[in-house]
Amino acid sequence: MTAPGRHLVTGAGSGIGAAVARILAGRGDELWLPARSAQRADDLSREFPKAHVFVADLADPASLEKSLTGLPDALDSVLHIAGVVELGPVAELEVDDLRAQLDVNLVAPMLLTKACLPALRAARGLVLVVNSSAGLTANAHWSAYAASKFGVRAFADALRAEEQGNGVRVTTVYPSRTATAMQQKVHEQEGAAYDASNWIDPQTAAGTIVHVLDLPGDATIPEVTIRPAPRQG
């Protein structure tokens, strides 16, 4: 019997992160789940009673390393799925909104990965970053979010080159619009009607992530892009 995997998953409270955590928990893998507050930690603990839930605010990267207590000596993956978005033109950028997107989407994944590298090397594990189509193309009103996603793309590319000799695989997943609470917020900010059926199901994105995670040791997928299927009419 294959031993249960050991994974640190950010963003497990909703959307793609929750879908991934449910798949992994359902098959008996061991999970470490950061939560941004004690209340969120309680919520996660109720949904994932066997998981190791701890408070770690990704919006406060300077505090992250002190939050990472009780991690195992070996981790099969660190899955960076959490993210925040705030749309707006450059002419109206608020520094707090800019800082929040950079901290959660870019700085926190870098520092979390740094802290977990010894455990990842021990297991020859995977670092997976859920990016966005905005990490490939920046459109009007998306400057801050896209900048954070272009940045985390560069981080993943550099990490892949640095860690290949240590057996650590690095994958970036670029999902297009996915039917999550974040996507509903984006539609509100764009002034557009939201219909979840038009977009990728979080379970579909989660299945892709788990497929990458479960690849045999002789293969890796550096990048994968997910797009909504063409629709009739």
Rank of each mutant, 00 (worst) to 15 (best):
E188Q: 15
K149R: 14
V90H: 03
K185I: 02
T113E: 03
A161T: 13
P4A: 09
Q183L: 15
V127T: 08
D195P: 05
E163Y: 09
V152P: 08
T69S: 06
P202N: 13
L112M: 11
T113F: 02
M182K: 07
A56K: 03
A108D: 12
G167S: 13
N131T: 11
L128I: 12
R40Q: 13
L112V: 10
S143T: 15
G5V: 04
L98W: 15
A19F: 12
L136N: 04
S133D: 15
V224P: 12
P175G: 10
S14T: 13
R99P: 00
G28R: 12
V130D: 01
L102P: 07
P89Q: 05
Q189Y: 06
A38P: 01
G207F: 10
D157T: 14
I200Y: 10
D157E: 15
D73F: 03
H187R: 12
S67D: 04
D201M: 14
A18T: 06
D42C: 00
R36T: 11
P228S: 13
A100M: 08
T180N: 10
Y174C: 05
A219H: 04
V130G: 02
E47G: 06
L8K: 03
S133H: 15
R177I: 13
D103H: 11
R6N: 01
P222Y: 00
L31Y: 02
F155M: 09
G135F: 14
K185F: 01
S148M: 08
S148L: 04
L87S: 10
L102N: 02
T113A: 05
A134C: 12
L117A: 04
L58C: 06
L31Q: 06
A100I: 04
L44Y: 09
R40W: 03
L215I: 03
V210S: 01
S67W: 00
G17N: 09
I221Y: 05
D201P: 13
Q189L: 07
L98S: 02
R169H: 02
R22H: 14
Y145S: 10
M110T: 13
K149Q: 09
E86F: 05
E47D: 12
T204Y: 15
L93W: 07
L79N: 03
E30T: 12
A161P: 01
V95E: 09
L87M: 12
L8Q: 04
L126T: 09
G11R: 02
L79A: 05
D218A: 07
H211E: 10
L58R: 04
L8N: 02
L75P: 09
G233Y: 13
S148Q: 07
G83A: 14
S67M: 00
G11D: 05
P34N: 08
R160A: 15
M110H: 11
Q189W: 08
R153L: 14
P109D: 07
V127E: 03
P72Q: 09
N166V: 05
V78Y: 05
Q164N: 12
R99D: 11
A147H: 07
V78K: 05
L93K: 01
N166I: 00
E163T: 15
R46I: 06
R27I: 07
E190M: 14
A229M: 13
L128C: 14
L126H: 11
D218V: 05
Y145E: 08
